Simulated scan of single mutants.
Amino acid sequence: MRVELDEPKCVASGQCVLTAPEVFDQRDEDGIAFVTDEEPAPDSLDAVREAVAICPAAAIRLTER
């Protein structure tokens, strides 16, 4: 599985970072999220799915490789 984040859509809420800190982080200057692990381990996928579901901007996608 591959994680994609549409940075222009991100509203810097930080929910993804709180939910899956092993996969997401935020820039210090503006709080916009970015992906630190585009192909997370299987044991992280539940947290990534939750991050996708709770993202207020719908900026995160989890796709098949």
Results as ranks from 00 to 15, higher is better:
M1S: 04
R2I: 10
R2K: 10
V3S: 10
V3N: 07
E4N: 04
E4I: 10
E4V: 08
P8Q: 08
P8R: 06
P8N: 07
K9G: 01
K9Q: 12
K9R: 14
C10T: 05
C10H: 01
C10V: 03
V11P: 00
A12K: 06
A12M: 08
G14N: 05
C16G: 11
C16Q: 09
T19A: 08
P21K: 00
E22S: 12
F24T: 07
D25I: 01
D28T: 08
E29H: 06
D30Y: 00
G31V: 05
G31Q: 03
G31H: 05
G31L: 02
I32C: 05
I32G: 00
A33P: 14
F34C: 09
V35I: 15
D37R: 07
D43T: 00
S44L: 14
S44E: 14
L45T: 11
D46R: 03
V48R: 10
E50H: 10
A53C: 05
I54M: 11
I54Q: 13
P56E: 05
P56W: 03
P56Q: 09
A57N: 07
A58I: 02
A59E: 02
A59K: 02
R61I: 03
R61T: 15
L62C: 08
L62V: 10
T63K: 11
T63C: 04
T63M: 07
E64V: 04
